[in-house]
Computed example of a mutant assay.
Amino acid sequence: MSTYELLPLGETVRPQHFNRTSTAWYSFCRLPAPWRRSPTLRRGLYLCIAFTAVLLLMEYTFTSVSIDRQQLRKLNGMQIYVAANLYNNEKILPMWIDELYKLLKFFGPKNVYVSIFENGSTDKTKQLLHSLKDSLNKMDVRNTIITDPTPKNYERRIPYLAQARNKVVEPMIKLYEDWKFDKVLFLNDILFSVGEIIMLIQSDIFNLLTTNDGNYDAACGMDFYGAFYDEFATREITGLPIGSGYYPFFADYKSRQSLINGLPVPVYSCWNGMIALNPEPFIKYGVKFRAVLPQRSQVPFEASECCLVHSDFRQLNYSKIYINPNVKVFYEESRYNYVHYVLPIINMVMWLFNHPKPLSDVELANLAQLYRSAADLGVKESDFICLQR
């Protein structure tokens, strides 16, 4: 008896004893019949697979960073002031706190101060922060954690947010005679990675703090909620809004080249969920977070307090401000896979097809009209860049 049988057209000849349905894995991997019968479809599929592999390789080449032991040694003994404003963050706080503990483990409890202000939360944020405070006290980590029962209520959002950010900076100013901090690390309600820095595994915090070899007045990561998120606070080095919410983001050519090469991108301003700041402007010159026209209950435009603080930095010649494209943070645990696995593919497709352009003449004319309106209301010229309708 022959060990082969005649199979239907389009099937591959196989030994009679080979059972094609004997393994679930084979059934799972087997192409649908139309694909098996069409060489054109098969070639298209293989090209798509190869193209995706190339995109992933290019993304790794562009954005992968190695942790330098020499830079790692520079972090040892660094004095870090961690500042955070939190509200209704019960879902992310367990992970957020775990990463904070890793940061404390690396820098040492004597080298970190934690300042958190929360108010108006209606979930379990307050309870989680009370537990965190108890833990920090047991670890001898100095801290100021305020949970304010006052409901979150305001006429204008930006003046309110500016006051909340100033509350977490206040302890640093009071402590300055006794404690000279190297960096202020502002952490929004984002999910970030400290990682096992000591094991030289890539870390958001490490990469941020060592931006431009530590030579910066402000260094931000990039935050994503689908597209790049914090366009409100971000201005390119030209002083104009960021060119696109999608890769390669920047209209400025030199900025795009820095991004593609995985290098820090000089910008006018940024925040993006996580930022490391030079504490000197706050302590030496009394810089505070603020709003434009704070006494007015309504204005025809607004400016982010996180952009205006950079305007004040620049007025004092603290102008080394960068976005570090190797630091990517997100706002929901479910977004982890998107940021780390889906976004790299989207980025490379956008690299081929998305070409951010400078503002058109019409857009520039609208911007000039906005600036004139702001000047008529008494807004300082140095604040114009941060304005947005």
Rank of each mutant, 00 (worst) to 15 (best):
A365K: 11
H340P: 01
A219L: 10
D217G: 07
V292I: 14
R235I: 02
Q70S: 12
G10C: 04
T40L: 14
V267P: 10
I283C: 14
I67M: 14
G243A: 08
F106G: 09
L240D: 14
N88L: 06
H310C: 10
S64H: 15
E280R: 15
D223W: 01
S121W: 07
F249M: 08
A83Q: 11
F330V: 05
R372P: 01
K110L: 00
T147K: 04
K284D: 15
E59H: 14
N119R: 12
W351V: 06
A365G: 04
S304R: 08
P300W: 03
N212C: 02
H310A: 10
F330K: 05
C270Q: 08
F107C: 03
F181S: 15
V287T: 13
M274I: 15
T12L: 06
G195D: 04
E231D: 10
A374I: 10
L161C: 05
S203I: 10
I345V: 15
S255T: 12
Q257G: 00
S135Q: 12
K138R: 11
C220Q: 05
V194K: 02
F353L: 13
L370M: 10
D123T: 12
N347Y: 05
N366D: 11
S297A: 08
K183Y: 12
I116L: 06
G243Y: 03
E302P: 03
R314G: 13
A303Y: 08
F181W: 14
Y87H: 15
Y246E: 09
L240N: 13
